[in-house]
Design a binder for these strands. Sequence first.
DNA 1: TCTGGGGTCCTAGGACCC
DNA 2: TCTGGGGTCCTAGGACCC
Length: 414
Amino acid sequence: MGRVVFHIDVNSAYLSWESAWRLQHGETVDLREQIAVVGGDEEKRHGIVLAKSIPAKRLGVKTGETLMEARRKAPGLIVVPPHYDLYMTCSGAMRDILAEYSPAVQQFSIDEMFLEYTGIERLYGPPLEAAHNLRERIKEELGFTVNIGVAENKLLAKMASEFQKPDRVHTLWEREIPHKMWRLPVGELFMVGIRTEIKLRRRGVETIGQLAAMEPDTLKSWFGKYGTMLWQYANGRECSEVGAWTPVKGIGNSATISFDVVDPDEAERILLALSETVALRLRAHGSCARLVSVHGRTHDFRGFQRQHMFHPPTDHTGEIHRRTVRLLHEVWEGQPLRHMGVRVSELVSNDFWQCSLFESERERERALDRAVDSVRSKYGPGALFRSCFLHTGIAPLMGGVSGEDDYPMMKSLL
DNA sequence: TCTGGGGTCCTAGGACCC
DNA sequence: TCTGGGGTCCTAGGACCC
């Protein structure tokens, strides 16, 4: 018997979790059976669909589209706000169940996990039997349904879990590729996004099968390295391990502001709030960054980005903030900003160079960062914040999706 | 009219060095 | 003095995933 991998995918994750929680707390209506979505707050300009029910999907509602668009397709649409902390809890509970079955479980996202089933048959039976057992257990114990894809590698398992939904187990063994995968539209292949789909279709490639039958060199000439990968995926070839550990490459936080930012002082304050969050996470990770970048989106949805290399690397809030301010001013010509972000990457371990730096001013600032971190970890992130945020309407730590419940926005006096 | 937040990887071009 | 190739570093931008 060869390799067996499961891909477990929570059906309509945010909406299912929201619904399961509500049913457990006395609600009688199951959102999954309604024309409903989980969506962001339109007043904060977060008004997109994060998850949709199957009845909403039937009306053409898509993840990522605006709530306006969704309502036009589905009049009377029920929109409920997200609760990210709940979703983390649900995700963790599912991971705990999976861990009982296999030592190799890989979290791919909050609602998708891979499980290596190779060599586990003598404990939990043939793959299909085990997959159904797992699917039932999650439904019984946690109250939400999953699709499970069963195959010889991660790519095929993931493709299999996308077949008919919800609450299903599908296989996509190599011998099943021609009739189960090759007839699908090329855009359904993992890693074929909208841009690549358009390019492929323009060149007459409509299905995954047609992609698989192409000359790999032709694809390479069209898309470079990426083309070679696509050809392999179309042919079901992929051999990465479940749970292969990948180090964190970068840490970033960004936020869409509920109003357009035109005041430079305000922009700098937002950069400080973002830098605080990024630097806090960077230090918690035990790293220093060589690269910092600022990115943004203007009111007309044009994006920009600018970056800078540090030598030596840093994990210092003030240094990161000061640099992001400079970078912003190098590119920003005063267009109203709707979105801003700070990101660090090229991470190195911070214990390696820490001792080599003895510039006293810097050392003092570092010590201050550490002290602030320790107060925040002890009493909560909102325990301490810079007074420049008082009365500004700007949260002192910005970015992230679960933060807003923990440290509420200051009320603006304006 | 309206469009989130968090990531990864690849490419292309310019500067600089040997 | 003029010319070319290859390697590295850096920056901007684009593509993909959830």
